[in-house]
Amino acid sequence: MAISLSKGQKVDLTKTNPGLSKVIVGLGWDVNKYDGGHDFDLDSSVFLLGDNGKVTSDIDFVFYNNTNGGNGSVVHTGDNRTGEGEGDDEQVKINLANVPSNIQRITFTITIHEGEARNQNFGQVSNAYARIISEDTGEELIRYDLGEDFSIETALVVGELYRHNGEWKFSANGSGYQGGLAALAKDFGLQVG
């Protein structure tokens, strides 16, 4: 039975699931009725952060154009450009046992591709969620439904896996940003051109 989280909650992942090392983080969403004439393309991205809350290099930013990070321990399975259909829209596979020791936090985000230019925002998105599944058993361990708290934001920090006393925990962040992916990337220490 999955643990259902609310914004701001934290939960043990590996301590309560001994032997767990391979997980899949599934991210999903639905687009409300939208007739602005543009595609509505949401993207998940992952930032691999050190102690200082920043990436150490560009390779610590995992997304549809850089699908591998953390020496292969974090793998983005690819871009879904429509968000249609049931189940996860995008997934990230993580081998927790192989995440390099300098990476303390794995932060999951969802952004709207060209949201500002297309006049799109998360007020037009519903049913956004993140869930963590055991890759070995397929069991859903943690689920976080973001709710409908966003209106003008074009980027969301959904949640993060982080190390705590040698174990991995998950924190449900649910914080919105204006400025899309560029604003997030800058906050996490990437040089945005």
Rank of each mutant, 00 (worst) to 15 (best):
residue 78 G to E: 03
residue 50 G to L: 04
residue 53 G to V: 14
residue 32 N to C: 08
residue 24 I to V: 13
residue 72 G to V: 07
residue 25 V to A: 08
residue 64 Y to Q: 09
residue 55 V to K: 07
residue 25 V to Y: 05
residue 43 D to C: 04
residue 60 D to T: 11
residue 65 N to H: 09
residue 65 N to Y: 03
residue 69 G to S: 05
residue 63 F to H: 08
residue 48 L to W: 11
residue 59 I to C: 01
residue 83 G to H: 04
residue 79 D to E: 11
residue 52 N to M: 01
residue 77 T to P: 00
residue 55 V to I: 14
residue 81 R to V: 03
residue 84 E to H: 06
residue 84 E to M: 05
residue 74 V to L: 11
residue 35 D to C: 00
residue 34 Y to L: 04
residue 44 S to I: 13
residue 66 N to F: 00
residue 61 F to T: 04
residue 83 G to S: 04
residue 57 S to V: 09
residue 78 G to V: 09
residue 86 E to I: 10
residue 53 G to K: 12
residue 70 G to F: 11
residue 55 V to E: 08
residue 65 N to L: 12
residue 68 N to L: 15
residue 61 F to G: 01
residue 93 K to Q: 11
residue 68 N to S: 15
residue 61 F to W: 10
residue 29 W to V: 11
residue 49 L to S: 09
residue 42 L to G: 01
residue 71 N to Q: 11
residue 79 D to S: 04
residue 43 D to M: 02
residue 29 W to F: 15
residue 36 G to N: 03
residue 85 G to Q: 06
residue 33 K to G: 07
residue 31 V to C: 09
residue 72 G to C: 07
residue 38 H to D: 04
residue 63 F to N: 03
residue 71 N to G: 14
residue 91 Q to Y: 00
residue 78 G to H: 02
residue 93 K to D: 13
residue 91 Q to L: 05
residue 90 E to I: 02
residue 72 G to D: 08
residue 58 D to C: 03
residue 73 S to T: 10
residue 60 D to P: 10
residue 79 D to M: 08
residue 43 D to H: 02
residue 36 G to F: 07
residue 25 V to R: 09
residue 60 D to R: 02
residue 36 G to Y: 10
residue 51 D to M: 03
residue 44 S to P: 00
residue 24 I to C: 07
residue 28 G to P: 05
residue 70 G to V: 06
residue 43 D to T: 06
residue 74 V to T: 10
residue 60 D to F: 04
residue 49 L to T: 06
residue 28 G to I: 12
residue 41 D to Y: 08
residue 46 V to T: 14
residue 71 N to S: 14
residue 58 D to V: 03
residue 50 G to S: 10
residue 92 V to A: 02
residue 51 D to T: 12
residue 66 N to M: 06
residue 57 S to L: 01
residue 89 D to F: 00
residue 54 K to C: 03
residue 45 S to F: 02
residue 79 D to P: 02
residue 51 D to G: 09
residue 90 E to R: 00
residue 76 H to F: 14
residue 56 T to D: 14
residue 39 D to K: 15
residue 66 N to L: 08
residue 64 Y to L: 11
residue 46 V to H: 03
residue 55 V to M: 14
residue 76 H to A: 10
residue 83 G to R: 11
residue 30 D to C: 07
residue 42 L to D: 05
residue 84 E to I: 07
residue 81 R to P: 01
residue 68 N to P: 00
residue 53 G to D: 05
residue 32 N to T: 08
residue 59 I to E: 13
residue 47 F to L: 12
residue 85 G to S: 12
residue 47 F to D: 02
residue 68 N to D: 05
residue 57 S to W: 02
residue 41 D to G: 05
residue 83 G to W: 11
residue 79 D to C: 06
residue 77 T to E: 11
residue 44 S to T: 14
residue 78 G to Q: 07
residue 83 G to Q: 06
residue 62 V to C: 07
residue 42 L to R: 02
residue 25 V to T: 07
residue 27 L to Y: 05
residue 66 N to R: 14
residue 66 N to H: 15
